[in-house]
Write a protein that binds this DNA or RNA. Structure first.
Lengths: 255, 255
DNA sequence: CTTGACCCTCACGCCACGTCAGACCTGATG
DNA sequence: CATCAGGTCTGACGTGGCGTGAGGGTCAAG
């Protein structure tokens, strides 16, 4: 009565026959018996195990780990679930952030603002974002962490117009720096200093607070060390990353 | 000046050299030039294109689609992004639901309630969940949609104790039904009718409203047609799905 | 005995690369 | 000029969780 063929198991559980073959092959779920004809026969215990498998699979646990969880008697399921929970929370947040990115990009598109000014402030690749922050905090201590939090809080309240003007100013600064570089102006010359004043103000706006000279110079390093920034600047003009960084350091020293 | 080797491109953009090879191989990003030695040489335009690629890749767009988006001149980027946005929202919600599932499971585990009573009300596999709802709505019209919404709203307010007792009652009902089946009691016999009264009440609790007899009978079909339910009942006892469904229909007819 | 619905075992395909292996190229140094 | 480090290349296989045939055996009903 309670013996099922592959097809029946598939219908009862919602997985494919191929998946059952696969689970058999990797030893995750072996049928209770195999006939002389090679047919797989499952029973209710197998069905129960399959249900457990599906539970873990829905949480995106690798099949290997599921096997380990189900086969080891003293396995700490609660601990594993708590670990999974963290992962899932992180994923949920990641996707929420990506939605934000798309929203801002769409706002850009519909507002007809130039399309290329979105890379810097998008917040995708949160690991790297976290990396920047960790770097800044390590270099400048706890107060920096607070500043970052302030910055985030402040920027959250911005509307689309704020973002658009913010990005336009960034583009303008970059454009002017590229021109200065092309003209061979020294980084401590008057015009470049003027641009740096605008950059300083722009940073102050994004941080919701005046940067210290040290932090400003540290940002220059950050620009040089991280691909997100170098790619952006190098794409505008070759050598712009270093030129900008030098200009920032020169400006910071005068403060 | 603005000519980059693979490694330089990799450093500037943060992708691996292997990925650049791959993008070349599939035609997504071909270097501006290839030397007589076979070396790939990129320029700033390539870097810009790579940045666009990375933007889309971060949104998990398949590389083929990215290529289509970048190569077709009249491509509707906004429409594509809106579609992606929907996907991302759905994913964010899915993960949030999974976190809920894990939380409830953990509550179960820590409350020492039996572990197997979690499958029915978990809300993972949202597509199928949506399928159930669509099925019910189609069968019973718009009022059912409203009822589902009510049910969800009501259950959201439940705490862990509510969930635990809710699940215990379900388990008790199933257990009693399995016993009745084993004893061969007819589905319209007194004891079975008594169990059905409890099942009815249980449904009423979850729906936040009394079911109509038609809806109750419809639920019986749902149990028989969907693997999530059949697997659950068949795992408890073979034939329980049909027995339960018959009992529900018999009960519904008497109302 | 035939039909049609099952069942089996290979075995390749997918996607976006990671990871060797083996060989060639280039620029700086002894 | 030889050497050496550190690039660069082209295969080619591995990853995970199966999907999707191909080619052939099995089983129950008519």
């Amino acid at each position: 009565m309670s013996v099922y063929t592959v097809k029946q198991m598939a219908k009862l559980s919602g997985v494919s026959v191929r998946a059952l073959h696969h689970y058999d092959a990797i030893g995750l779920l072996k049928p209770r018996a195999v006939g002389a004809n090679g047919y797989r026969y499952y029973d209710r215990q197998d069905l129960l195990r399959l249900q457990q498998i599906l539970f873990h699979r829905a949480l995106e646990t690798p099949l290997k780990d599921i096997q380990a969880a189900l086969d080891q008697p003293g396995f700490d399921l609660a601990a594993a679930l708590r670990a999974q929970r963290e992962r899932l929370v992180a994923e949920a947040e990641r996707y929420a952030r990506l939605v934000d990115v798309v929203d801002r990009t769409l706002a850009d598109l519909e507002g007809d603002v130039t399309m290329d000014d979105k890379k810097l402030f998008e917040g995708f690749d949160p690991e790297k974002q976290a990396g920047y922050e960790a770097e800044l905090v390590e270099r400048y201590g706890e107060p920096m962490a607070e500043r970052i939090a302030q910055s985030k809080a402040g920027m959250k309240a911005w509307d689309k117009t704020d973002w658009a003007s913010f990005q336009q100013e960034a583009a303008a600064i970059e454009h002017d720096m590229a021109k200065a570089l092309a003209q061979g102006l020294p980084v401590d010359s008057g015009p470049v200093t003027a641009i740096m004043r605008r950059h300083w103000a722009w940073i102050a706006k994004s941080w919701n607070r005046e940067p210290t000279p040290d932090a400003f110079a540290g940002l220059a390093h950050l620009y040089q060390d991280n691909p997100e920034f170098t790619a952006r600047y190098e794409a505008i003009a070759p050598g712009l990353t270093e030129y900008l960084a030098e200009a920032m350091r020169a400006f910071a020293e005068k403060r």
